[in-house]
Computed example of a mutant assay.
Amino acid sequence: MKLIYVFDAYCGWSHGFSPTLREMAARHPGLDVEVVSGGLFTGSRRVPIREFGYVRGANAQIAQLTGAEFGEAYERLTADGSFVMDSQAAARGFAALRRAAPARAVELATALQHAFYVDGLSLSDPATYRKIAERAGLDADLVVAAYEGAEAGSAAEADFARAAALGVDAFPTLLAADGEGATVLARGRAGAQDVERRLAAFASTRSF
């Protein structure tokens, strides 16, 4: 059995779910966690943030319900509404980080969201991945080179296809899966206790 976490680095609800994800990973260190980028802002949705008038109100709700931090640097970055959230670039960056440290995918996914929502760093800027890599003790030059290489683009597209194949169209979504099937443990907001209860119920139905 493993967990599959489908998120988008530019999704505020995914940012709010980060503590639950980290807690579940800490509670079950022997359980593999596959982390997949979902591709929320791609194609025609890759436009200035002002086009999404609900974002500011949604962020306030996310902060209230989950305790998630939206930093002053993030507010400055997005204040005039011209910033473009490009999920393809963010997925390439996550793919580069994941490639450098596959076993730390949960940590790196949440670090990516912290870089945007707290530190106000663009996830389309190679310098952002250099900072994240340095903070994580990874080879920053290799991470940046991977972000800029063709393989990261292919990995991002593979992630989007994986999310679609899983039937995930809302972020974040956390699933438990084994060879017999999968079940949704969380979609959107959920605390660790609720996720734990659903995981236990799923595990109790499996044959080992």
Rank of each mutant, 00 (worst) to 15 (best):
H114F: 13
F160W: 06
A127P: 14
D125C: 14
Y54E: 07
L121I: 03
A150K: 11
V47L: 15
P19F: 03
G120Q: 05
F160V: 10
D32Y: 15
R92T: 00
R22L: 13
S82F: 07
G39R: 01
L166W: 01
M85Q: 06
E151Q: 04
D8W: 11
I4W: 07
P172H: 01
T78H: 13
A100C: 10
R27L: 10
G30M: 15
V168P: 15
F17M: 05
P48E: 03
A115Q: 07
Y5L: 11
L166T: 02
F83C: 04
E107W: 08
Q61H: 11
F116A: 08
F70E: 01
D8E: 07
A150V: 14
T205D: 15
R45K: 14
G153D: 04
D178S: 07
A9I: 00
F70V: 01
Q113G: 06
G53P: 15
A91Q: 04
P172Y: 00
M1S: 11
E69C: 10
S18W: 02
F94G: 04
R135L: 06
S204D: 12
D119P: 08
P126I: 00
G39F: 07
F83M: 05
P172R: 00
Q113N: 04
F208C: 15
R162A: 09
I4E: 11
A182Q: 12
G30L: 15
R135Y: 01
S18D: 02
A63I: 00
L3F: 01
L97V: 09
Q61E: 10
L77C: 07
I4C: 15
Q193R: 13
L199P: 12
I62R: 11
R189S: 06
Q64G: 14
V168L: 13
F208P: 15
E23Y: 10
G120D: 05
G149F: 05
F70T: 00
A186R: 06
G167E: 00
A79P: 14
T128V: 11
Q88A: 12
I4M: 14
Y5E: 09
L31K: 09
F70R: 05
A176T: 00
V106P: 15
T128Q: 10
R50H: 08
L77G: 05
D141Y: 07
V118T: 05
P126M: 05
F160S: 11
R104G: 09
P102G: 05
A73H: 06
Y147F: 06
D141M: 04
G57Y: 02
I62Y: 03
A95H: 01
E180H: 02
A177G: 13
E157T: 06
H15Q: 11
G30I: 12
G167D: 01
R50Q: 09
L142G: 15
